[in-house]
Simulated scan of single mutants.
Amino acid sequence: MDLKLFFNPIDESLTPESFDNDSLIQSIYINENKMPSIDAIDIAIIGLNETSGNPEITDTGLRFIRKKLYSLKKGEGSCNIIDLGNLRNGPELEETYKRIQAVCHKLISKGILPILIGGSHDLDIGQYLSYQEEEKMVSIVNIDSRFDINEKGTQITNQNHFHKIFTHEPNYLFNYTQLGHQSYLVNPSADKVLTQLGFNSLRLGAIREDFRRVEPLIREADMITFDLSAIQKMYCPAGDRSEVFGLTGEEACQIMWYAGMNDKLSSVGIYEYNANKDSNDHQSAMVIATMIWYFIEGFKNRKGEKGFQTNDYIKYVVTLDVNPESIVFYKSRLSDKWWMEVPNINHTGIYDRNYIVPCDYNDYQQATKGEVPERWIQTFSKMV
């Protein structure tokens, strides 16, 4: 695949010479007139201009986001980043999905993490389809103020795209987690649908009660999709459906920090920026840029926490008086994070091994009291 055939170069005004010597752009390979090599790249930024799923967005404002992002300071540590430019839309929306799928699959297969910015939220369909050829189950975390699972209409939009993902065949969606939705914007039946499917949701109020609950949910994700409507309008007025209430800008950045540190995560998308709704100084573009900056900083701090049979982990076996007879927990010596092991009793199909699910200390404490954590039950039910 020749990537230059898929992309338009970035705006000519955004050149390294236009920014300070210690700004982030000085450490980014830019698609100007010639597409740089992707060899040894860690993160690839991709601009999206497709808005068919939300005609309200008439200006994706990618130039504003890039200007804010490029002007930020480099931060500590090293990370090889490339900005591939803006993906060329297909003649039809479905073709754009396929282009996103092809590009992201190529990058992910080479160990490069794509960051998709701009466009309508339904473009995460292409992001999801990029995992199809991997032949493994995928866990998605979606940060959004609403549930986009409306079944009405045949045309795919930013309000029904997850119905398309849920019903896609072949089905390789292992888990879906919705974060930050606002109960007064959500039909109660939608939450029940997620529960029936064995999926998770954590409303805005529950996040506010204990923000630490977010981290293990983020840590399970292979893919994150972030609708800017989840952020309060005072912080992000250009989130196309942003409301008075929602996440703060700081909370959005904290989520992106968690996401960057997730060794399992291999793609992230930030959608629904409507430049026409932004402030004169492009406040929302700055919020997005800062979210990306925190993601990159989190990425630099990844610990490589995947091999649980090493001395980097403390293993705890908690015996129970109920079924299961015991639960195995792992605690990282590097980060103090927790996981628990869910057995695959059939040892067939895609779950040929036990499943290690992220958790927290509260799950361990619950098990020591003789109770089976809900997270364990939910994961086990998907494997039988």
Rank of each mutant, 00 (worst) to 15 (best):
G298Y: 03
T60R: 00
A238E: 08
L247Q: 06
P324C: 08
N323Y: 12
L247F: 04
G61N: 07
L228E: 11
N49Y: 10
F295R: 06
G260T: 08
L173G: 02
Y361I: 11
S326M: 10
E50Q: 14
S229F: 05
C236T: 13
A44I: 11
P216Y: 06
N21P: 01
W293E: 12
L247I: 05
K67I: 10
I377Q: 14
F64K: 09
A275D: 12
A367I: 08
V141F: 07
D240E: 15
I117N: 01
D222G: 00
I57A: 04
A230C: 13
G298P: 11
V186C: 11
V372Y: 10
L185A: 03
N175G: 08
G304L: 07
Y184L: 05
D321F: 03
V141D: 04
M1F: 12
D124V: 02
N80S: 10
I57Q: 01
N311R: 14
M234H: 10
G249M: 03
D2Q: 11
I65N: 00
I350H: 09
R63M: 09
N280V: 08
K192P: 03
E17G: 06
P91Q: 12
N362F: 11
T310S: 15
A259C: 10
R212T: 10
S266T: 12
I25R: 01
I100R: 00
A285W: 02
I218H: 00
H121S: 11
Q132N: 12
Q232W: 01
E305F: 06
P216C: 01
Y273Q: 06
E305I: 00
V138Q: 02
S189M: 10
Y271W: 14
D222N: 13
G298K: 01
I356T: 13
H163A: 02
H163Q: 13
I156Y: 01
D22R: 09
I117F: 02
E250M: 15
Y131M: 09
K4W: 06
E135T: 15
L14Y: 03
Y273D: 05
L3N: 07
N8L: 14
H181W: 13
Q127E: 14
W339P: 04
A285E: 11
M261V: 08
A206I: 09
K152R: 13
H161P: 04
I255N: 01
L69I: 15
E215G: 00
M286V: 04
K152V: 12
T290F: 02
I41N: 00
F211Q: 09
